[in-house]
């Protein structure tokens, strides 16, 4: 059976989402997107320069990709909402990744303001994917408010530390009905694979690809890792055993003893 990624009322082949910041140039970015197989690509509206003939980032997004504008730079719900509306009015569609950050040191998201933006933008007809700190009750509220997915961070943006929030994300995977997409902190394909193995619906990667010595090849490595992790998850990963063989029924053996 085909395993499609369903989000925002649509179906996609790829479970790897790509960010478009930090690349040395747009031509490399475009090749990396193509090589990644990504169907959904996020672009910061702050970087979109529609007036520019040569340097409009949107011209380098492959046409088959769904554009998900993000609200990078927003400091509160109001700014995020305004950015989303600007994006829509500018023809960038209605898929929006909400990023509200009030912390410039670690770039950690502000969940409460993010929730407020979700509530408003869903009502306005946007497909809303909030970037968030992995907090179950917040994720539930965002889901209730109509978020198309929730995007907990694995580690701070650009840290390349991997899924340090694993236990919290695993709880979200178990409890949240909409897709859980790990966004931020994924520094290597093995880490992306780990996210998929624990049942995340998808991962979003940017820094690890963009600043690699060979972004195009790295994009393909992430593509393969995400597919491998997903297949492993669907196959049912056997539990890990201990290092030594287990003694036979030391606790319940008495049940077969003769009285």
């Amino acid at each position: 059976m085909e395993d499609l990624f369903r989000v925002g009322g649509r179906e996609f082949q790829s479970r790897l989402l790509l960010g478009t910041g930090k690349f040395a140039n747009y031509a490399v970015m475009k090749k990396a997107i193509e090589e990644s197989g990504s169907d959904i690509v996020t672009v910061a509206l702050r970087r979109v320069d529609p007036g520019s003939q040569a340097d409009n980032i949107l011209d380098f997004i492959p046409p088959q990709c769904t554009l998900m504008t993000n609200t990078s730079g927003a400091r509160d719900a109001d700014e995020a909402i305004r950015i989303a509306r600007l994006a829509k009015a500018g023809g960038a569609g209605n898929w929006i990744k909400i990023e509200v950050v009030q912390d410039n040191k670690y770039l950690l998201p502000e969940n409460l303001e993010t929730l407020k933006a979700v509530e408003v933008l869903v009502k306005e007809g946007f497909v809303v994917l909030p970037y968030m700190s992995p907090d179950l009750s917040m994720a539930r509220r965002m889901e209730d408010a109509g978020a198309a997915a929730v995007m907990p961070l694995g580690a701070p943006i650009g840290s390349n530390r991997g899924i340090k929030t694993r236990e919290l994300v695993e709880i979200m995977v178990r409890e949240i009905k909409v897709p859980v997409i790990v966004d931020a902190g994924i520094g290597s394909p093995s880490q992306a694979c780990e996210c998929m193995e624990i049942g995340c619906a998808a991962v979003l990667v940017n820094t690890a690809v963009a600043i690699s010595e060979n972004p195009v090849q790295m994009a393909s490595a992430f593509r393969d890792a995400v597919m491998a992790g997903r297949r492993a998850y669907l196959s049912g990963i056997p539990e890990k055993g201990g290092l030594s063989g287990a003694a036979s029924s030391p606790l319940t053996g008495f049940l077969s003893d003769e009285k």
Partner: peptide
């Protein structure tokens, strides 16, 4: 560009 860096001319906008 020759040094392998992207010159960014726009990184914010009036909201």
């Amino acid at each position: 560009v020759a040094r392998g860096y992207q010159p960014v001319l726009k990184d914010w906008m009036q909201l």
